[in-house]
């Protein structure tokens, strides 16, 4: 496996869609390639940091306002 191959399998790697054989090849490659190791690690961190931080907060106040508006619009259509 070379660096380009690794990149093409990157998403499947994070989505746990890889065969044990490919997973093994990726581990072998990253053990000897610092660039790919960093890309793998920091892409993982990218996904995690977006998952772990709510960047558009929906406050209770906003949620209530939305909820009331939605329900009154829908019930008006009945």
């Amino acid at each position: 496996m070379n660096c380009t191959d690794l990149l093409s399998h990157l998403s499947d790697y994070f989505d746990e869609q890889l065969s044990p054989r490919l997973l093994d090849e990726i581990r072998t490659h990253t053990a000897g390639c610092q660039h790919c190791k960093v890309v793998l690690d920091t892409t993982h961190q990218t996904i995690e940091v977006y998952k772990g931080n709510e960047i558009y907060e929906v406050s209770d106040e906003l949620r209530e306002r939305l909820h009331t508006a939605i329900m009154s619009k829908c019930l008006a259509k009945k």
């Binding site: 998403s11 890309v39 920091t42 892409t43 961190q45 990218t46 996904i47 940091v49």
Partner: peptide
């Protein structure tokens, strides 16, 4: 979806690297 997701993740990684 898979191809866009890969490129989206890589682009975000690249941009976030400036900060992190």
């Amino acid at each position: 979806v898979k191809s866009r997701l890969l490129r989206a993740r890589l682009q975000l990684r690249e941009r976030l690297s400036r900060y992190f």
